[in-house]
Design a protein around this nucleic acid. Structure first.
Lengths: 213, 213
DNA sequence: ATTGTTGGATAGTACAGCTAGCCAATGACT
DNA sequence: AGTCATTGGCTAGCTGTACTATCCAACAAT
Protein backbone atom coordinates (compact mmCIF):
# COMPACT_ATOMS: atom_id res chain seq x y z
CA UNK A 1 0.00 0.00 0.00
CA UNK A 2 1.43 3.35 -1.00
CA UNK A 3 0.82 6.60 0.78
CA UNK A 4 -1.97 7.64 -1.58
CA UNK A 5 -3.86 4.44 -0.85
CA UNK A 6 -3.25 4.80 2.87
CA UNK A 7 -4.74 8.26 2.57
CA UNK A 8 -7.75 6.99 0.62
CA UNK A 9 -8.44 4.13 3.03
CA UNK A 10 -8.07 6.19 6.19
CA UNK A 11 -9.58 9.42 4.96
CA UNK A 12 -6.58 11.36 6.23
CA UNK A 13 -5.03 13.75 3.64
CA UNK A 14 -1.53 12.95 2.41
CA UNK A 15 0.06 16.13 3.81
CA UNK A 16 -1.38 15.28 7.19
CA UNK A 17 0.00 11.76 7.01
CA UNK A 18 3.37 13.22 6.18
CA UNK A 19 3.00 15.52 9.15
CA UNK A 20 2.23 12.59 11.46
CA UNK A 21 5.28 10.77 10.09
CA UNK A 22 7.45 13.79 10.83
CA UNK A 23 6.00 14.12 14.29
CA UNK A 24 6.70 10.51 15.05
CA UNK A 25 3.06 9.53 15.55
CA UNK A 26 3.11 7.09 12.67
CA UNK A 27 5.99 4.67 12.04
CA UNK A 28 7.67 4.99 8.64
CA UNK A 29 6.59 2.59 5.93
CA UNK A 30 8.95 -0.05 4.67
CA UNK A 31 11.23 1.59 2.15
CA UNK A 32 11.26 -0.38 -1.09
CA UNK A 33 13.32 2.19 -2.96
CA UNK A 34 14.48 5.73 -2.52
CA UNK A 35 11.09 7.08 -3.50
CA UNK A 36 8.75 4.26 -2.55
CA UNK A 37 7.56 3.01 0.78
CA UNK A 38 5.06 0.30 1.61
CA UNK A 39 2.42 0.79 4.30
CA UNK A 40 0.34 -1.95 5.84
CA UNK A 41 -2.66 -2.74 7.98
CA UNK A 42 -0.77 -1.63 11.03
CA UNK A 43 -0.53 1.89 9.67
CA UNK A 44 -4.24 2.00 8.99
CA UNK A 45 -4.95 0.92 12.54
CA UNK A 46 -2.50 3.40 13.93
CA UNK A 47 -4.11 6.20 11.98
CA UNK A 48 -7.52 5.24 13.38
CA UNK A 49 -6.03 5.32 16.83
CA UNK A 50 -4.49 8.74 16.27
CA UNK A 51 -7.74 10.18 14.96
CA UNK A 52 -9.68 8.73 17.87
CA UNK A 53 -7.30 10.22 20.41
CA UNK A 54 -7.29 13.52 18.55
CA UNK A 55 -10.94 14.00 17.63
CA UNK A 56 -12.71 12.17 20.38
CA UNK A 57 -10.13 12.40 23.13
CA UNK A 58 -8.98 15.91 22.17
CA UNK A 59 -5.42 15.05 23.09
CA UNK A 60 -2.75 17.39 21.73
CA UNK A 61 -0.28 15.89 19.26
CA UNK A 62 2.54 15.91 21.79
CA UNK A 63 0.46 13.91 24.26
CA UNK A 64 -0.53 11.42 21.57
CA UNK A 65 3.12 10.90 20.76
CA UNK A 66 3.86 10.01 24.37
CA UNK A 67 0.90 7.65 24.58
CA UNK A 68 1.87 5.86 21.38
CA UNK A 69 5.48 5.59 22.51
CA UNK A 70 4.24 3.88 25.67
CA UNK A 71 1.99 1.56 23.65
CA UNK A 72 4.95 0.57 21.51
CA UNK A 73 7.30 0.01 24.41
CA UNK A 74 6.97 -3.70 25.05
CA UNK A 75 8.83 -3.53 28.33
CA UNK A 76 6.06 -1.47 29.94
CA UNK A 77 3.31 -3.14 31.94
CA UNK A 78 -0.34 -2.62 31.09
CA UNK A 79 -0.66 -0.50 34.18
CA UNK A 80 2.15 1.83 33.15
CA UNK A 81 0.85 2.23 29.61
CA UNK A 82 -2.59 3.07 30.90
CA UNK A 83 -0.99 5.43 33.39
CA UNK A 84 0.69 7.25 30.50
CA UNK A 85 -2.67 7.70 28.84
CA UNK A 86 -4.18 8.96 32.07
CA UNK A 87 -1.33 11.37 32.48
CA UNK A 88 -1.84 12.63 28.93
CA UNK A 89 -5.55 13.08 29.56
CA UNK A 90 -5.01 15.16 32.66
CA UNK A 91 -4.74 18.76 31.53
CA UNK A 92 -1.72 20.47 33.01
CA UNK A 93 -3.10 22.00 36.18
CA UNK A 94 -0.36 23.77 37.97
CA UNK A 95 -0.91 23.55 41.70
CA UNK A 96 -0.37 26.61 43.85
CA UNK A 97 1.03 25.14 47.04
CA UNK A 98 1.27 28.58 48.64
CA UNK A 99 -2.45 29.16 48.30
CA UNK A 100 -4.40 28.16 51.37
CA UNK A 101 -7.61 27.43 49.45
CA UNK A 102 -5.69 25.26 47.02
CA UNK A 103 -4.08 23.18 49.77
CA UNK A 104 -7.47 22.63 51.33
CA UNK A 105 -8.98 21.48 48.05
CA UNK A 106 -6.05 19.19 47.45
CA UNK A 107 -6.34 17.54 50.85
CA UNK A 108 -10.09 17.16 50.35
CA UNK A 109 -9.27 15.36 47.11
CA UNK A 110 -6.76 13.12 48.85
CA UNK A 111 -9.24 12.42 51.61
CA UNK A 112 -11.94 11.33 49.16
CA UNK A 113 -9.54 9.01 47.36
CA UNK A 114 -8.41 7.52 50.65
CA UNK A 115 -11.94 7.01 51.92
CA UNK A 116 -12.86 5.19 48.76
CA UNK A 117 -9.86 2.97 49.25
CA UNK A 118 -8.60 3.68 45.77
CA UNK A 119 -5.02 2.90 44.86
CA UNK A 120 -3.76 6.08 43.24
CA UNK A 121 -0.16 7.09 42.81
CA UNK A 122 0.75 9.87 45.22
CA UNK A 123 2.23 11.85 42.32
CA UNK A 124 -0.66 11.38 39.92
CA UNK A 125 -1.59 14.67 38.25
CA UNK A 126 -5.19 13.50 38.40
CA UNK A 127 -5.12 14.32 42.11
CA UNK A 128 -4.41 17.93 41.27
CA UNK A 129 -7.10 17.90 38.65
CA UNK A 130 -9.62 16.68 41.20
CA UNK A 131 -8.44 19.37 43.57
CA UNK A 132 -9.01 22.01 40.91
CA UNK A 133 -12.56 20.80 40.36
CA UNK A 134 -13.24 20.85 44.09
CA UNK A 135 -11.75 24.33 44.36
CA UNK A 136 -13.87 25.61 41.49
CA UNK A 137 -17.02 24.13 42.95
CA UNK A 138 -16.40 25.66 46.33
CA UNK A 139 -15.53 29.05 44.86
CA UNK A 140 -18.88 28.98 43.11
CA UNK A 141 -20.63 28.17 46.33
CA UNK A 142 -21.59 24.65 45.36
CA UNK A 143 -21.24 21.53 47.50
CA UNK A 144 -17.64 20.47 47.07
CA UNK A 145 -16.91 18.06 49.85
CA UNK A 146 -15.84 14.51 49.29
CA UNK A 147 -19.32 13.49 50.42
CA UNK A 148 -20.93 15.46 47.61
CA UNK A 149 -18.71 13.81 45.03
CA UNK A 150 -19.05 10.31 46.41
CA UNK A 151 -22.03 9.30 44.25
CA UNK A 152 -20.07 10.32 41.20
CA UNK A 153 -17.09 8.32 42.33
CA UNK A 154 -19.16 5.24 43.00
CA UNK A 155 -20.97 5.42 39.69
CA UNK A 156 -17.66 5.86 37.92
CA UNK A 157 -16.13 2.88 39.69
CA UNK A 158 -19.04 0.64 38.84
CA UNK A 159 -18.92 1.53 35.14
CA UNK A 160 -15.19 1.05 34.98
CA UNK A 161 -15.28 -2.30 36.72
CA UNK A 162 -18.18 -3.82 34.85
CA UNK A 163 -17.90 -2.35 31.40
CA UNK A 164 -14.41 -1.17 30.70
CA UNK A 165 -11.48 -2.92 32.25
CA UNK A 166 -13.46 -6.03 33.08
CA UNK A 167 -14.41 -6.68 29.49
CA UNK A 168 -10.92 -6.46 28.05
CA UNK A 169 -10.17 -9.80 26.49
CA UNK A 170 -6.55 -10.71 26.80
CA UNK A 171 -6.56 -13.27 24.01
CA UNK A 172 -5.07 -10.87 21.48
CA UNK A 173 -1.65 -9.50 20.84
CA UNK A 174 -0.31 -7.22 23.51
CA UNK A 175 -0.43 -4.34 21.08
CA UNK A 176 -4.10 -4.81 20.32
CA UNK A 177 -5.04 -5.26 23.96
CA UNK A 178 -3.14 -2.17 24.98
CA UNK A 179 -4.58 -0.12 22.16
CA UNK A 180 -8.09 -1.19 23.05
CA UNK A 181 -7.57 -0.36 26.68
CA UNK A 182 -6.05 3.05 26.03
CA UNK A 183 -8.51 4.15 23.43
CA UNK A 184 -11.35 2.73 25.49
CA UNK A 185 -10.32 4.96 28.35
CA UNK A 186 -10.59 7.99 26.16
CA UNK A 187 -13.69 7.13 24.19
CA UNK A 188 -15.73 5.86 27.10
CA UNK A 189 -14.92 9.07 28.86
CA UNK A 190 -16.50 11.03 26.07
CA UNK A 191 -19.39 8.64 25.82
CA UNK A 192 -20.23 9.20 29.46
CA UNK A 193 -19.84 12.94 29.09
CA UNK A 194 -22.14 13.10 26.08
CA UNK A 195 -24.75 10.91 27.73
CA UNK A 196 -24.64 13.03 30.84
CA UNK A 197 -25.37 16.15 28.84
CA UNK A 198 -28.21 14.39 27.08
CA UNK A 199 -29.62 13.31 30.42
CA UNK A 200 -29.43 16.91 31.54
CA UNK A 201 -31.20 18.20 28.49
CA UNK A 202 -33.96 15.66 28.92
CA UNK A 203 -34.37 16.40 32.61
CA UNK A 204 -34.34 20.10 31.96
CA UNK A 205 -37.02 19.73 29.29
CA UNK A 206 -39.27 17.90 31.73
CA UNK A 207 -38.67 20.14 34.72
CA UNK A 208 -38.63 23.52 33.07
CA UNK A 209 -40.74 22.74 30.05
CA UNK A 210 -39.94 23.64 26.49
CA UNK A 211 -41.26 27.10 27.14
CA UNK A 212 -41.33 28.26 30.70
CA UNK A 213 -39.22 29.80 33.41
CA UNK B 1 -13.64 48.89 42.93
CA UNK B 2 -11.21 49.89 40.21
CA UNK B 3 -9.72 47.60 37.63
CA UNK B 4 -6.53 47.03 39.58
CA UNK B 5 -8.50 45.87 42.60
CA UNK B 6 -10.69 43.67 40.45
CA UNK B 7 -7.53 42.12 39.13
CA UNK B 8 -6.10 41.62 42.61
CA UNK B 9 -9.29 40.09 43.98
CA UNK B 10 -9.87 37.76 41.05
CA UNK B 11 -6.30 36.86 40.25
CA UNK B 12 -6.84 37.71 36.60
CA UNK B 13 -4.20 40.07 35.11
CA UNK B 14 -5.37 43.51 34.06
CA UNK B 15 -4.57 43.04 30.34
CA UNK B 16 -6.66 39.89 30.39
CA UNK B 17 -9.55 41.71 32.03
CA UNK B 18 -9.29 44.34 29.33
CA UNK B 19 -9.33 41.58 26.77
CA UNK B 20 -12.48 40.08 28.27
CA UNK B 21 -14.11 43.50 28.23
CA UNK B 22 -13.23 43.91 24.56
CA UNK B 23 -14.57 40.46 23.79
CA UNK B 24 -17.83 41.20 25.53
CA UNK B 25 -17.44 38.52 28.19
CA UNK B 26 -17.43 41.02 31.00
CA UNK B 27 -19.84 43.95 31.16
CA UNK B 28 -18.21 47.37 31.33
CA UNK B 29 -17.87 48.94 34.75
CA UNK B 30 -19.83 52.02 35.66
CA UNK B 31 -18.02 55.00 34.18
CA UNK B 32 -17.46 57.62 36.86
CA UNK B 33 -15.31 59.81 34.66
CA UNK B 34 -13.52 59.62 31.36
CA UNK B 35 -10.74 57.55 32.87
CA UNK B 36 -12.42 55.85 35.80
CA UNK B 37 -14.88 53.04 36.00
CA UNK B 38 -16.30 51.30 39.02
CA UNK B 39 -16.56 47.49 39.18
CA UNK B 40 -18.61 45.56 41.65
CA UNK B 41 -19.32 42.18 43.14
CA UNK B 42 -21.09 41.19 39.97
CA UNK B 43 -17.89 41.57 37.99
CA UNK B 44 -15.98 39.41 40.43
CA UNK B 45 -18.62 36.70 40.13
CA UNK B 46 -18.66 36.99 36.37
CA UNK B 47 -14.89 36.59 36.25
CA UNK B 48 -15.11 33.46 38.38
CA UNK B 49 -17.71 32.13 36.00
CA UNK B 50 -15.56 32.88 32.96
CA UNK B 51 -12.52 31.20 34.48
CA UNK B 52 -14.57 28.15 35.44
CA UNK B 53 -15.96 27.78 31.94
CA UNK B 54 -12.52 28.37 30.46
CA UNK B 55 -10.25 26.35 32.71
CA UNK B 56 -12.52 23.60 33.90
CA UNK B 57 -14.99 23.48 31.03
CA UNK B 58 -12.41 24.23 28.31
CA UNK B 59 -14.91 26.30 26.41
CA UNK B 60 -13.48 28.62 23.75
CA UNK B 61 -13.96 32.34 24.31
CA UNK B 62 -16.56 32.61 21.56
CA UNK B 63 -18.67 29.88 23.16
CA UNK B 64 -18.39 31.53 26.57
CA UNK B 65 -19.64 34.76 25.07
CA UNK B 66 -22.74 33.01 23.75
CA UNK B 67 -23.40 31.25 27.04
CA UNK B 68 -23.08 34.49 29.00
CA UNK B 69 -25.32 36.30 26.56
CA UNK B 70 -27.96 33.63 27.17
CA UNK B 71 -27.50 33.92 30.93
CA UNK B 72 -28.03 37.66 30.71
CA UNK B 73 -31.08 37.45 28.48
CA UNK B 74 -33.93 37.55 30.93
CA UNK B 75 -36.52 36.58 28.35
CA UNK B 76 -35.01 33.12 27.95
CA UNK B 77 -36.32 30.18 29.92
CA UNK B 78 -34.05 28.06 32.10
CA UNK B 79 -34.30 25.31 29.57
CA UNK B 80 -33.13 27.50 26.72
CA UNK B 81 -30.21 28.92 28.68
CA UNK B 82 -29.09 25.45 29.65
CA UNK B 83 -29.53 24.39 26.05
CA UNK B 84 -27.17 27.16 25.00
CA UNK B 85 -24.58 25.84 27.40
CA UNK B 86 -25.05 22.31 26.11
CA UNK B 87 -24.71 23.54 22.57
CA UNK B 88 -21.49 25.34 23.48
CA UNK B 89 -20.13 22.23 25.16
CA UNK B 90 -20.75 20.05 22.14
CA UNK B 91 -17.64 20.27 20.00
CA UNK B 92 -18.47 21.03 16.39
CA UNK B 93 -18.80 17.59 14.88
CA UNK B 94 -19.72 17.95 11.29
CA UNK B 95 -21.89 15.07 10.21
CA UNK B 96 -21.25 13.33 6.89
CA UNK B 97 -24.74 12.42 5.73
CA UNK B 98 -23.37 10.80 2.57
CA UNK B 99 -21.36 8.31 4.57
CA UNK B 100 -23.16 5.05 5.17
CA UNK B 101 -21.30 4.23 8.39
CA UNK B 102 -22.08 7.67 9.71
CA UNK B 103 -25.80 7.39 9.05
CA UNK B 104 -25.87 4.06 10.81
CA UNK B 105 -24.11 5.46 13.86
CA UNK B 106 -26.47 8.39 13.90
CA UNK B 107 -29.56 6.22 13.80
CA UNK B 108 -28.10 4.01 16.52
CA UNK B 109 -27.71 7.17 18.60
CA UNK B 110 -31.29 8.21 17.90
CA UNK B 111 -32.53 4.73 18.75
CA UNK B 112 -30.77 4.74 22.12
CA UNK B 113 -32.23 8.12 22.99
CA UNK B 114 -35.69 6.98 21.97
CA UNK B 115 -35.50 3.74 23.93
CA UNK B 116 -34.49 5.63 27.03
CA UNK B 117 -37.48 7.88 26.54
CA UNK B 118 -35.36 10.98 26.73
CA UNK B 119 -36.70 14.27 25.48
CA UNK B 120 -33.98 15.60 23.22
CA UNK B 121 -34.38 18.23 20.54
CA UNK B 122 -34.22 16.64 17.11
CA UNK B 123 -31.64 19.22 16.05
CA UNK B 124 -29.43 18.93 19.11
CA UNK B 125 -25.75 18.73 18.11
CA UNK B 126 -25.31 16.34 21.01
CA UNK B 127 -27.01 13.69 18.89
CA UNK B 128 -24.23 14.02 16.34
CA UNK B 129 -21.64 13.93 19.07
CA UNK B 130 -23.08 10.67 20.36
CA UNK B 131 -23.07 9.32 16.83
CA UNK B 132 -19.41 10.18 16.48
CA UNK B 133 -18.56 8.34 19.66
CA UNK B 134 -20.51 5.30 18.50
CA UNK B 135 -18.82 5.43 15.12
CA UNK B 136 -15.38 5.63 16.70
CA UNK B 137 -16.11 2.73 19.01
CA UNK B 138 -17.30 0.54 16.18
CA UNK B 139 -14.37 1.45 13.98
CA UNK B 140 -12.09 0.31 16.75
CA UNK B 141 -13.94 -2.96 17.06
CA UNK B 142 -15.47 -2.22 20.43
CA UNK B 143 -19.08 -2.79 21.46
CA UNK B 144 -20.93 0.26 20.20
CA UNK B 145 -24.59 -0.61 20.24
CA UNK B 146 -27.15 1.25 22.25
CA UNK B 147 -27.24 -1.74 24.57
CA UNK B 148 -23.54 -1.39 25.35
CA UNK B 149 -23.97 2.26 26.21
CA UNK B 150 -27.14 1.82 28.22
CA UNK B 151 -25.42 1.41 31.61
CA UNK B 152 -23.58 4.66 30.99
CA UNK B 153 -26.81 6.40 30.09
CA UNK B 154 -28.58 5.13 33.18
CA UNK B 155 -25.77 6.06 35.51
CA UNK B 156 -25.65 9.51 33.93
CA UNK B 157 -29.39 10.00 34.33
CA UNK B 158 -29.35 9.01 37.96
CA UNK B 159 -26.54 11.41 38.79
CA UNK B 160 -28.20 14.24 36.96
CA UNK B 161 -31.56 13.70 38.59
CA UNK B 162 -30.41 13.25 42.13
CA UNK B 163 -27.38 15.47 42.38
CA UNK B 164 -27.46 18.16 39.75
CA UNK B 165 -30.74 19.52 38.54
CA UNK B 166 -32.68 18.21 41.49
CA UNK B 167 -30.65 20.13 44.01
CA UNK B 168 -30.95 23.51 42.37
CA UNK B 169 -32.66 25.79 44.81
CA UNK B 170 -34.84 28.31 43.11
CA UNK B 171 -34.92 30.74 46.01
CA UNK B 172 -32.29 32.99 44.52
CA UNK B 173 -32.24 35.57 41.82
CA UNK B 174 -32.74 34.21 38.33
CA UNK B 175 -29.19 35.19 37.44
CA UNK B 176 -27.69 33.24 40.31
CA UNK B 177 -29.82 30.19 39.67
CA UNK B 178 -28.99 30.17 35.99
CA UNK B 179 -25.30 30.66 36.65
CA UNK B 180 -25.26 27.83 39.12
CA UNK B 181 -27.04 25.53 36.74
CA UNK B 182 -24.83 26.33 33.77
CA UNK B 183 -21.57 26.15 35.60
CA UNK B 184 -22.74 23.06 37.40
CA UNK B 185 -23.28 21.37 34.07
CA UNK B 186 -19.73 22.04 33.10
CA UNK B 187 -17.97 21.39 36.36
CA UNK B 188 -19.85 18.24 37.25
CA UNK B 189 -18.94 16.92 33.85
CA UNK B 190 -15.30 17.33 34.63
CA UNK B 191 -15.74 15.96 38.11
CA UNK B 192 -17.22 12.78 36.73
CA UNK B 193 -14.51 12.52 34.10
CA UNK B 194 -11.72 12.93 36.61
CA UNK B 195 -13.26 10.44 39.00
CA UNK B 196 -13.70 7.93 36.21
CA UNK B 197 -10.03 8.14 35.33
CA UNK B 198 -9.12 7.73 38.97
CA UNK B 199 -11.36 4.69 39.19
CA UNK B 200 -9.58 3.30 36.16
CA UNK B 201 -6.16 3.87 37.61
CA UNK B 202 -7.15 2.19 40.83
CA UNK B 203 -8.71 -0.77 39.05
CA UNK B 204 -5.73 -1.07 36.77
CA UNK B 205 -3.36 -1.05 39.73
CA UNK B 206 -5.26 -3.92 41.34
CA UNK B 207 -5.71 -6.01 38.20
CA UNK B 208 -2.36 -5.54 36.57
CA UNK B 209 -0.31 -4.78 39.63
CA UNK B 210 2.17 -1.98 40.01
CA UNK B 211 4.74 -4.06 38.19
CA UNK B 212 3.39 -6.78 35.99
CA UNK B 213 1.99 -7.50 32.55
C1' DA C 1 10.41 9.34 -23.50
C1' DT C 2 6.83 10.92 -21.13
C1' DT C 3 3.92 11.25 -17.35
C1' DG C 4 2.85 10.96 -12.66
C1' DT C 5 3.82 9.64 -7.95
C1' DT C 6 6.78 9.51 -3.93
C1' DG C 7 9.63 10.95 0.05
C1' DG C 8 11.89 14.63 2.11
C1' DA C 9 12.34 19.30 3.29
C1' DT C 10 11.01 24.11 4.12
C1' DA C 11 7.85 27.53 4.62
C1' DG C 12 3.44 29.37 5.28
C1' DT C 13 -1.45 29.51 7.18
C1' DA C 14 -5.32 30.09 10.46
C1' DC C 15 -7.00 30.36 14.76
C1' DA C 16 -6.95 30.93 19.85
C1' DG C 17 -5.83 33.35 23.92
C1' DC C 18 -3.58 36.33 25.58
C1' DT C 19 0.35 40.23 26.30
C1' DA C 20 2.65 44.60 25.45
C1' DG C 21 2.94 49.26 24.39
C1' DC C 22 1.24 53.73 23.81
C1' DC C 23 -1.59 57.79 24.82
C1' DA C 24 -4.12 61.50 26.88
C1' DA C 25 -7.17 62.25 30.78
C1' DT C 26 -7.55 62.10 35.34
C1' DG C 27 -7.21 61.52 40.44
C1' DA C 28 -4.42 61.48 44.68
C1' DC C 29 -0.90 63.42 47.16
C1' DT C 30 2.25 67.05 48.52
C1' DA D 1 -0.02 74.14 41.74
C1' DG D 2 2.91 70.47 40.63
C1' DT D 3 4.07 65.78 40.44
C1' DC D 4 3.23 61.05 39.59
C1' DA D 5 0.82 56.75 39.09
C1' DT D 6 -3.47 54.82 37.29
C1' DT D 7 -7.08 54.29 33.99
C1' DG D 8 -9.65 53.29 29.66
C1' DG D 9 -9.17 52.70 24.93
C1' DC D 10 -6.54 51.50 21.17
C1' DT D 11 -3.48 48.86 18.07
C1' DA D 12 -0.12 45.61 17.46
C1' DG D 13 2.49 41.66 18.58
C1' DC D 14 3.35 37.10 20.61
C1' DT D 15 3.08 32.00 21.45
C1' DG D 16 1.41 27.57 20.54
C1' DT D 17 -1.15 24.11 17.78
C1' DA D 18 -2.44 21.54 13.84
C1' DC D 19 -2.14 21.51 9.80
C1' DT D 20 -1.30 23.01 4.31
C1' DA D 21 1.30 24.27 0.42
C1' DT D 22 5.07 24.19 -2.43
C1' DC D 23 9.13 22.59 -4.32
C1' DC D 24 12.41 19.16 -5.75
C1' DA D 25 14.83 15.32 -7.46
C1' DA D 26 14.36 10.31 -7.77
C1' DC D 27 12.07 6.96 -9.45
C1' DA D 28 8.11 3.82 -11.62
C1' DA D 29 4.77 2.87 -15.17
C1' DT D 30 3.50 2.99 -19.86
Amino acid sequence: MRISQLSAVSGVPIPTIKYYLREGLLPAGEQTSATRAEYGERHVRRLRLIRALLEVGRLPIAAIRKVLAAVDDETLSMHLVLGTAHYALAPAVEPHPDDEAWREARSEADRLIAELGWRIDAQAPTRDELAQVILTLSRLGMPATGEALRPYAEAAMELVMEHEIGTISLDRTREEAVETLVVGTVVHGRALDVLRRLAQESTSAQLFGISGT
